[in-house]
Amino acid sequence: MSDKKQFREPPCFISTARHDAHTVDLLNNLFKDSARGGYSDIHIEDTDEGAVIRRRHNGIMSEYSRISRAQSRDIQDKIRKKSSIPPSELQAPRDGRMFLEVDGRVVDIRVNIYPIRTGHSIVCRLLDQNNASRQLEEVEMTPDVRREIEKIMFGPEGMLLVSGPTGSGKTSTLYAALNKLNTPERKIITVEDPVEYRLEGLVQG
Rank of each mutant, 00 (worst) to 15 (best):
V139P: 00
T171I: 09
T173P: 02
A177V: 13
G167Y: 00
L174W: 11
I152Y: 10
P165S: 09
P165M: 09
L178H: 13
E138D: 06
E150I: 10
Q135F: 05
L136H: 13
F154S: 04
S168L: 10
K170H: 10
T166Y: 03
M153D: 02
T142Y: 08
E157G: 10
M153T: 06
V162M: 09
R147T: 10
V145H: 05
N179M: 09
T166S: 15
L136T: 07
G155Q: 05
D144L: 07
S163A: 14
I152Q: 08
Q135S: 14
K151P: 00
G164C: 07
L174S: 04
E148H: 12
T142R: 06
T171M: 01
S172M: 03
M159H: 06
G169Q: 01
M153W: 06
M153Y: 06
A177H: 04
A177C: 15
A177I: 15
F154H: 15
R147N: 06
E137L: 11
E148L: 14
P143D: 02
T173M: 04
T142Q: 10
A176Y: 04
R134V: 02
E148M: 14
T166P: 13
R134H: 07
G167H: 05
G158C: 06
G158I: 02
D144T: 08
V162N: 07
E150Q: 15
T166C: 10
R134L: 13
D144P: 00
K151R: 15
G158E: 03
P165D: 11
V145K: 05
G164P: 10
V139Q: 00
E148V: 06
E157K: 12
T166E: 08
K151I: 01
G167I: 01
P156K: 07
K170M: 05
A176L: 02
G164F: 11
Y175R: 08
G158D: 07
S172R: 03
L160G: 03
L136R: 14
A176F: 08
A176V: 05
L161N: 02
L161M: 14
M141G: 04
A177D: 00
L178S: 05
I152T: 13
Y175N: 02
E150H: 08
D144G: 05
L174D: 00
Y175E: 00
M141P: 01
T142P: 01
L174E: 00
M141E: 01
P165E: 11
E138T: 13
M153N: 05
D144W: 10
V139H: 01
I152G: 03
V162C: 08
S172H: 01
G167S: 03
T142K: 13
S163E: 09
M159N: 08
S168G: 11
S168Q: 02
G169D: 00
E150W: 13
Q135L: 12
D144C: 11
G155Y: 12
G169E: 00
L161R: 11
E140A: 15
S168H: 12
M159V: 12
D144M: 06
M153P: 04
I149R: 04
M153H: 05
R147H: 15
L174V: 14
S172T: 14
P156G: 08
